[in-house]
Design a protein around this nucleic acid. Structure first.
Lengths: 101, 101
DNA sequence: CGACCTGTGAATATGGTGTGAACGCAGGCA
DNA sequence: TGCCTGCGTTCACACCATATTCACAGGTCG
């Protein structure tokens, strides 16, 4: 199980992410991104790594897909768990998932 | 691995410096400087050496970049590890990194 | 068609960077 | 000891790079 210690429970095999047992309505991309991040808690992942896992291949040099989906993910997570800060930005590098904020 | 003996664990390849497993939020420059210092523990490094490694080239004669970034690094390290004195000043020469304070 | 997902470009917001200046501390010397 | 001086430390700011968010057009699937 991924990140099941807090209120967030991610179940890749069931294509679901639950908050207090209640499923978030994430799109496929959003879930893929969340799963990828959550598979490496506390690890700073570059945009290239995230892109490779979720989209496959390499992003165009000016591709902002990862950023946009991080933004969408944060919006939905923030709505479900107000005040939570699960995804951290590392400027110039990438993003990091921290299960406990 | 660099300086992994204490609470501080520096991982240049992961763009990260961990304290008790949790990444510090360092900027790219700050991390570069920390890595450079930590690559030569107990060795006094001159400003010129540090500048050459982190910024490349030679600093202007009155350049204070190294000092400023040492200060910023100390602030963040001190917040994460209260009481720690990892970076030592050597007056008129430069700085020295000591993994165990 | 309608509802939604997706990726892109563009506007906005945020944070990093280097510089100059003010401040503080330590060492030298009378 | 007390002052002076040089160096190190920190602050404040302007500029620039990067991240965030918004709006939209094309695609998909019912």
């Amino acid at each position: 199980m991924l990140a099941g210690m807090g209120r967030l429970d991610i179940r890749p095999s069931e294509h679901a992410a639950l908050v207090d047992g209640r499923p978030l309505s994430l799109t496929v991309r959003e879930l893929q991104l969340l799963v990828t991040l959550a598979e490496h808690p506390q690890r700073i992942m570059t945009r290239d790594e995230l892109f490779a896992e979720v989209w496959g291949g390499r992003p165009r040099s000016d591709d902002r897909s990862v950023d946009v989906y991080v933004s969408r993910l944060r919006a939905k997570l923030g709505e479900a768990i107000p005040g939570a800060q699960l995804i951290h930005t590392h400027n110039g590098i990438g993003y990091r998932f921290s299960p406990d904020g």
